[in-house]
């Protein structure tokens, strides 16, 4: 059994907290990195992280790419989307197919 967590700025993750998802507030990249690494070590299966935070710690996100657990999933924050999530899908396609076919 795995738990679910969300990492991001306080205003974006408050709603998730009401639904029983563990919300870990992070103000800057360092805090976000520590939070994500801690969560990954514990029993967390899915870690949602806001794109704003993820853009500060690309290498940490990268590290969990080829592990099945945890799944680090980017979500937009309340300031809107940075399109990093969609870019990552495009990168995957380019990696697998060689060109972007979407």
């Amino acid at each position: 059994m795995y738990k679910v967590a969300v990492v991001g700025d306080k205003n974006s993750i408050l709603g998730f907290k009401a639904l029983g998802i563990d919300a870990i507030p992070a103000l800057d990249g360092d805090e976000a990195r520590v939070a994500v690494d801690n969560l990954a070590r514990q029993n967390y299966g899915i870690i949602f992280i806001t794109e704003q935070m993820a853009s500060l710690i690309p290498d940490t996100i990268e590290r969990y790419n080829n592990q099945m657990i945890p799944a680090v999933i980017l979500i937009p924050s309340n300031q809107g989307t940075l399109n990093i999530g969609l870019d990552r899908i495009r990168d995957n396609v380019e990696k697998a197919v060689g060109i972007n076919i979407l």
């Binding site: 059994m1 795995y2 738990k3 679910v4 408050l14 639904l19 029983g20 099945m68 657990i69």
Partner: peptide, 23 residues
């Protein structure tokens, strides 16, 4: 929102797609 009524956990099984362990 401090004390959620609901608790969410997730059950992850693996599915084998051509040797890839997909969750």
């Amino acid at each position: 929102v401090a004390y959620p009524k609901e608790s969410i956990s997730v059950d992850i099984k693996r599915e084998n797609i051509m040797g890839v362990n997909a969750p």
